[in-house]
Write a protein that binds this DNA or RNA. Structure first.
Lengths: 207, 207
DNA sequence: GATGATATCCCTGAAATCAGCCATTTTTAA
DNA sequence: TTAAAAATGGCTGATTTCAGGGATATCATC
């Protein structure tokens, strides 16, 4: 019996996954967790064979969870779930040690296939994702950067339409400092404008 | 027996909803649709009592569906489902004639409560949403603007980091025209920068 | 104690955006 | 068919952002 663990903060999605998995005779749902922290502990204590992991979690990002699990040298198979079909996410989650990537708007069969592929040591990517990956040469894809608390704060204010000067006023810091954070963000995301930063950050659930 | 119709493009969410609803003895799932177009037809032919409607659909937005149903003078109850908890969305969906708003990360019981409230002629808002609405005076909330195809195209390119001149080149139009579109977008979204436009557009699934 | 990451601050000049106007043509809807 | 909406193009000037260099203080971790 293959033990599957679910990590997703949407109870309805969780319900759907549970329903889907329990229909499979060779699978059993070992545990369900709605936060990254609880999920990590669950992986340690329950020792599942496969983890279905939502990327956008309220506390820790799925990517970080992936990395932490891999650091612990566990050979559990991880299949990432996401609503977004973005190059950066795909590249990053796979680099973090995931064994599959399935969009939430894919059909249930795809998830079963992803689980089976992962168990066989393969990596399953849903159709739309596969196209993207094959289109792009590896070098083009960069990683989702690690963002500091202050940078997150700046992004939030920028995305609300505040200018550098206004943000500086609100945070009681110099406009120069805000400028520095902007520049760092543009560099970290490897883009050329803050608009692009905001789009990515919004998609990744960073703001 | 209360007939419920589901419109959502995520099969897993659909599965979860179906599972949740069939556990209720007084409810029956009359139909499931994954696109707005099919959903609208379903409402006409199946005459459900309640519709659970995802806001972010691939073809027509949930808000437009709401408006169209109301224009046809149907007294079906509509409960909006969304992952986002944004003022604009809430205001707009309620103005479009929805009888409830539930976030997808809320528990199943909330959806049942929303259905019951809607059937009693009440409007149910999940907790997080209620707070937002009560915080803000009606006047502060504006509407999600209607965006043209060209404007959508411009937003997409802006969000990728292209400058006005680069976009003009790509679309074989004058930079002045691109400027016009930018200005219209900023005005339509009632914000002061394109960064804010992009954040909202991303959240609303417009790009 | 050293190292690295974070947060703070400064400068200049080029490039881009935004605000405020207006006008024409084509397409769509009433 | 008439009116409204969309897409196109234009101008000026003020404001803002971006690129490119810096520097210093703090804090945690190793």
């Amino acid at each position: 019996m293959i033990k599957v663990l679910l990590i997703d903060d949407h109870p309805i999605v969780m319900e759907g996954l549970k329903n889907l998995l329990t229909r499979q005779e060779d699978l059993t749902v070992a545990g369900c967790f709605s936060t990254g922290k609880a999920g990590l502990e669950g992986i340690t204590t329950l020792q599942p064979d496969v983890v279905l992991l939502d990327i956008n979690l309220p506390d820790i990002s799925g990517i970080e969870i992936c990395q932490q699990v891999r650091k612990q040298d566990k050979d559990v198979r991880i299949i990432a779930l996401s609503v977004h079909n973005e190059r950066l996410v795909i590249k990053n989650i796979l680099n973090s040690g995931a064994n599959g990537y399935v969009l939430k708007n894919s059909v249930g069969e795809e998830i079963i296939m992803a689980i089976n592929a992962a168990l066989n040591g393969a990596t399953y990517l849903c159709r739309a994702t596969r196209d993207i990956v094959s289109q792009v040469s590896e070098g083009e894809l960069t990683s989702i950067p690690r963002i500091t608390r202050r940078e997150k704060e700046i992004m939030g204010l920028v995305s609300k339409g505040f200018t550098t000067a206004q943000i500086a006023d609100q945070l009681f810091i110099s406009p120069h400092t805000v400028e520095s954070h902007r520049k760092n963000l543009i560099e970290k995301f490897d883009v050329s404008t803050m608009t692009a930063v905001i789009k990515l950050a919004t998609q990744f659930g960073l703001i």
